[in-house]
Amino acid sequence: MSAIAALFVIPGLFFFAVGTLGILRFPDFYTRLQAAGKCDSFASVLVLLGIAIYNLGDFTLASLLVSIKIMLIAVFVFIASPTATHAITESALIVGVEPWMRKERKKQ
């Protein structure tokens, strides 16, 4: 059980790191959203899965309920994270944050 859990947690941590590096390295707000909005949600779902599997190691009704709760959090993150990303992007476009473009595109 713990080996399978580690198999989920380690890639999750890797994608968390990628998301964080992304929001530090990308040149403008919209590209940062890409990294933050989904690498992070995918990573947290992976880690949550890993913790849920680890928790099932000693199988009782209570630990089963806790694992179901953790999966509920994962489902919620899966629905809520794109919605939040969508809301932030739309308000950024309405307010008029300048997007970063390729130089040859800017001239057009």
């Binding site: 909005g37 794109p82 969508h86 739309e90 476009l93």
Partner: peptide, 15 residues
Amino acid sequence: FGQSITLTPATITVS
């Protein structure tokens, strides 16, 4: 469809 586009990276549904 919109949520799937946002979830698969490199694309975000704006409106």
